[in-house]
């Protein structure tokens, strides 16, 4: 695989991989580290990588696994409040968000409470806007299971969100 092919096939996915990792590890710094490590890993495995049919699924799986490992190795019982939308975070300007940071944190907290596969399904569908088949390939579950997980996740989020919302303001 040439450097150009690597850039086109894998490096081009970095935003998606970053968001995926961030949703798991909750820290922008760790998510950045993950993306960097994964890219190097892919390059080191470039002979194998060139032959893979579903490259996005393969690399997203790797990213997810590494993110989970990093999370576990932190020995943290809770993910804590994800910093993804921190006010002081230079990479994301909150001025564009129409709601308060509290609301954003609420949604992230709710999502953090979801079982992992449900959270992944929501991440890949509602944020990454992937088709059910693509999600099924990455998570190695059936399309029907994806649909069920999305149904459950959305209803849990709705219930929790409306619950907290009524306390707010």
């Amino acid at each position: 695989m040439t450097v150009e092919e690597f850039t086109n096939d894998f490096m081009s996915m970095k935003q998606r991989l970053y968001r995926l990792s961030l949703s798991i590890v909750g820290s922008t710094m760790v998510a950045e580290d993950v993306v960097q490590e994964i890219m190097i890993k892919v390059w080191n495995k470039r002979v194998e990588a060139a032959k893979i049919e579903n490259k996005p699924a393969w690399v997203m799986k790797m990213t997810r696994n590494l993110s989970i490992d990093k999370l576990r190795s932190k020995h943290s019982k809770t993910r804590g409040i994800p910093e993804g939308y921190d006010v002081v975070n230079k990479t994301h300007t909150p001025e564009t968000i129409t709601q308060s940071n509290d609301t954003v944190r609420t949604i992230q907290d709710i999502m953090a409470k979801l079982p992992e596969v449900q959270r992944m399904c929501i991440q890949l569908r509602d944020i990454e806007e992937m088709k059910y088949k693509e999600i099924a390939d990455i998570l190695e579950i059936s399309v029907d299971q994806v649909k069920v997980n999305i149904y459950r996740a959305r209803n849990y989020i709705k219930k929790e969100f409306l619950k907290t919302d009524s306390y707010g303001v």
Binding site: V3, T7, M11, K14, Q15, Y18, R19, T28, E32, V35, Q36, M39, I40, W43, G84, Y85, T91, H92, T96, I97, T98, Q99, T103, V104, I107, D126, I127, E128, E129, I157, K158, F161, D165
Partner: peptide, 23 residues
């Protein structure tokens, strides 16, 4: 807020330094 969140979450961040380091 929920639907806005999903839209916001997809915004791109600057990952140029990562790309440069990897390359």
């Amino acid at each position: 807020p929920l639907f806005s969140y999903f839209q916001e979450a997809k915004k791109e961040v600057s990952l140029d330094s990562i790309e440069a380091a990897v390359m």
